[in-house]
Amino acid sequence: METRRYQDVNVQVIDRCKNGDNRAQYELYKLYAKAMFNVSMRITNDYAEAEDVLQEAFISAFKNLHTYKADASFGSWLKKIVVNAAINAIRKKRSELVPMDERLAEDVADEVDEDDNEWKVEQVRYAIQRLPDGYRVVLSLYLLEGFDHAEIGEILGITESTSKSQYSRARKKLVEIMRAPHIVAH
């Protein structure tokens, strides 16, 4: 019920946006800016770049609003735009986003040793920021943005299994970073 009504509210605002209503555009921006900025931040790992991405994504979203069909939630439609813009941005900067060295995948144990339950959000977030680009992107998309490996493969132009192995390697690396003394102290 709650989500349904929420979407209905959006539909009206979106319709007004389609007509170029500035106030409706601002309403929509206010509603999604923070969440989308954090998506962008996690992928680009750079404040200024994340803002550029957000700006580009919102402009593109408003210009292409007529292509949005109400079958998916507006949030997830917008998120796809943000993710794509963010990935394009880091691709421009760095040559290879996901190292395609599959040999590494075999080294990763299925069971990652995460015995302690004493995680803190701040600590995890900090550790994610310290992951290498390729790991951070896959891990963020899967863990925080809710994409599955097939979708991630599509977004990044890799296979589903590469996404999976990349994710488990990222997890392992994350544990390593969290165990490092300066993080524990953090």
């Binding site: 800016a33 923070k34 969440a35 931040m41 994340a50 803002e51 995890v124 977030r125």
Partner: peptide, 13 residues
């Protein structure tokens, strides 16, 4: 929710 800690500048809009 707690993972979303950043906010863009006000002027961005």
């Amino acid at each position: 929710e707690e993972f979303d800690v950043f906010e863009p500048r006000q002027e961005l809009w």
